Simulated assay, not measured.
Amino acid sequence: MTTGNDQKTRTALVTGASAGIGRELALVFAEHGFDLVLVARRKERLEALAQEVQGKFGVKAHIMTIDLANPAAPRQIFDEMARRHIMVDALVNNAGFSVPGYFRDTHWEDQKGLIQVMVTAVAELCHLFGPGMAARRYGRIINVASLAGHLPGAAGGTLYAAAKAFVIKMSESLALENINNNVHVTALCPGFTYSEFHDVAGNREEMNKLPKIIWMTGDVVARQAFDAVMAGRPVIINGGINNFIALLARLLPQRLVHSLMARNQRNAKAKPRAA
């Protein structure tokens, strides 16, 4: 990517790049001239995406297959970038999943993995790559949160909403810390987005009952995220309906909000697809 007096090709590292919003974000960064580092567990999908962006946009695409549920993964990613002499200018923390079902009925190892992937790894990757960005006075970080982070947690999403709320607040704080470093940090808060996320979570049948007007496509969400981080917006909630929902959650009496959320049993009744 070259802008103004900057003649340097920049590199974006995207976690959870094999599908969904992560894949779309990788495509948008590539379209804007960024080389890519694609990180996920599914090697075949990463290889296919790498070939696609190289053919379409002429950028370099590196892949790294790793599971962020492994506590050692963030440091391994950082060390591998140093070994390959790849300077990361943009970081997209997108990897994530949900653990459906009542909290009391789930396996702790699954919940522990959610915290590792969606809280600890996000914070650690920002902590590892952020200082270099600040020192070079250029950095772009997108932390994929959710509209759920602005709402009370629904049944069956006990730690999901909590993790996303953490990501939002952390991103806001990092944005303020780096306000004079040309390092922009944005929490991306999509609502319902077409992807395979709900197939894996096991609530696709319930999700299909929702009105189509509330759904957005991944490419639109990704483009809005890219524009937001480039403009230095700490938080972006995608879509007018989602912004209205978040506003109501702040303004309505919390007793009423909790009563409304109590009706949402989609995740509690979901049956996750086998990995």
Rank of each mutant, 00 (worst) to 15 (best):
D6I: 01
Q7A: 04
T9L: 11
T9M: 13
T9E: 06
T11G: 02
A12G: 11
A12E: 03
A12H: 10
A12F: 05
G16F: 04
G16Y: 06
G22Y: 06
L25C: 08
A26L: 12
A26V: 04
F29K: 11
A40S: 15
R42T: 00
E44T: 11
A50S: 15
V53L: 06
V53I: 05
V53R: 05
V53N: 09
F57D: 09
F57P: 13
F57E: 13
V59T: 05
A61C: 06
T65W: 09
D67V: 09
L68H: 07
A72C: 06
A73S: 10
P74L: 08
P74K: 09
Q76S: 15
F78V: 12
F78N: 14
D79H: 10
E80C: 13
A82S: 12
R83E: 15
R83P: 10
R84P: 04
H85T: 05
D89T: 07
A90S: 11
L91Q: 09
V92F: 02
N94R: 07
A95Q: 07
A95V: 05
G96D: 03
G96T: 04
G96L: 02
G96I: 00
V99M: 08
W108K: 01
E109C: 07
E109D: 14
D110T: 11
Q111L: 05
K112Y: 14
T120F: 08
V122G: 03
L125C: 08
L125M: 15
L125H: 07
L125W: 03
L128M: 10
F129N: 05
G132M: 04
A135S: 08
A135P: 03
R136V: 04
I141E: 04
A145G: 10
L147A: 02
L151I: 06
L151N: 04
A155S: 11
T158F: 11
T158I: 10
T158D: 03
Y160F: 06
A161G: 11
A162L: 01
A165N: 13
F166L: 02
I179K: 14
N180W: 10
V183P: 01
H184G: 02
V185I: 06
T186C: 12
A187E: 12
C189I: 08
C189K: 08
G191I: 01
F192R: 00
Y194T: 09
D199M: 09
A201G: 14
G202A: 02
R204I: 00
E206F: 01
E206I: 00
E206M: 03
N208E: 13
N208H: 08
P211R: 13
P211V: 07
K212N: 14
K212M: 09
I213F: 15
I213Y: 11
I214Q: 05
W215A: 03
M216F: 04
T217K: 15
T217R: 14
G218K: 12
G218A: 08
A222M: 03
R223Y: 07
A225Y: 13
V229Q: 10
A231F: 02
G232H: 00
R233G: 10
P234Q: 06
V235Y: 05
I236L: 15
I236N: 00
N238L: 10
G239D: 04
G240W: 15
I241D: 07
F244V: 11
I245G: 14
A246C: 12
A246N: 12
L247Y: 13
L256T: 04
L260A: 15
L260H: 06
M261A: 14
R263T: 05
N264L: 07
N264A: 05
N264V: 09
R266V: 01
N267C: 00
A270M: 07
A270V: 01
A270K: 00
A275W: 14
A275Y: 15
